[in-house]
Amino acid sequence: MKRTLEVLLVLAVLGILLSLITGPLGWRAPTRVILYLRLPRILLAITAGASLAVSGCILQAVLRNPLATPYTLGISAGAGVTAGFIILSGVTLPVFLVYLSGTAGALAASTLTWFLAGRGSRDHSSLILAGVTVNLLGASVLLLIEYMSPASRLVEIVRWMMGDLAVAGYRRILFLVPFLVAGMIPALMKTGTLNQFLTGTEVAESRGVNTVRERLFLLVAAAVLAGGAVGAVGPVGFVGLIVPHTVRRLAGGDYRRLLPLSALGGAVLMIWADIFSRVIITPAELPIGVILSLLGGPFFLYLLVKKPML
């Protein structure tokens, strides 16, 4: 564990330093650019990356599925539909409300997943099936919105779906912090319970875990974390899949180590993905979602070959 922590810390520090000097004028950029453009961007990458990684980590244990990600609960579809509606309507909302609408859509979709799964016993398979259903419904509605959108708005919707870390100032980070705190603290307090979920519902129950209540509690924490991140940076994928699996291989499966290390790993991945997104076609930028999807595809292949650990 110590070695993994050291490696992640080194990567984080290197990434932060490199990110601070990446961009037009490099390290000679004015202090204002560094303080109001680059530093907030790094902080946003850290908070969103940590949120998405921890959210995925929680869901893999609670749903007992190595391929579970924040989007298994329908979060991506929910956020996409609300963002699509707002962009299509052409309404100009205050920035805070734009972020909040993405989060609200994500949380609404998770809630719908929970209630649909209630037709069964809300065990891990019912929740996954309900999440797939909500994702498919959301994707269909989003397709309809895109079909009905004029070309200029269609570009906006597609661009939003690809994720965006470009910020000026600290408003987006301040928006995300309450979600980060509200999701991360309960998750860190429940690492022992998450370990019990790995042994299956019956054994966890026999060891004193109220699996129905704790599953709901942890799903809410995961949805809050992912919902906040999606509201702030758009529905970027794969962080919640790549990071927990990599950390699991390096530091073992005990959630008391895995969860905090995944938070750090998520931050590191987002910082470095952001650096690449800014340098690959410089002076233009690639959306961060493109970089993460390019990583995510081969990672699925890696999981296919190595068999995912859970």
């Binding site: 307090m189 022992g192 370990n195 019990q196 073992g252 499966g253 005990d254």
Partner: peptide, 22 residues
């Protein structure tokens, strides 16, 4: 559970005797 040693797996049985995060 994958990624746990035998002793870590056995220690999961001590869960009712300690707090969830200790």
């Amino acid at each position: 559970p994958a990624g746990l040693t035998a002793i870590e797996t056995v220690l999961l049985g001590r869960f009712p005797h300690r707090s969830a995060w200790s």
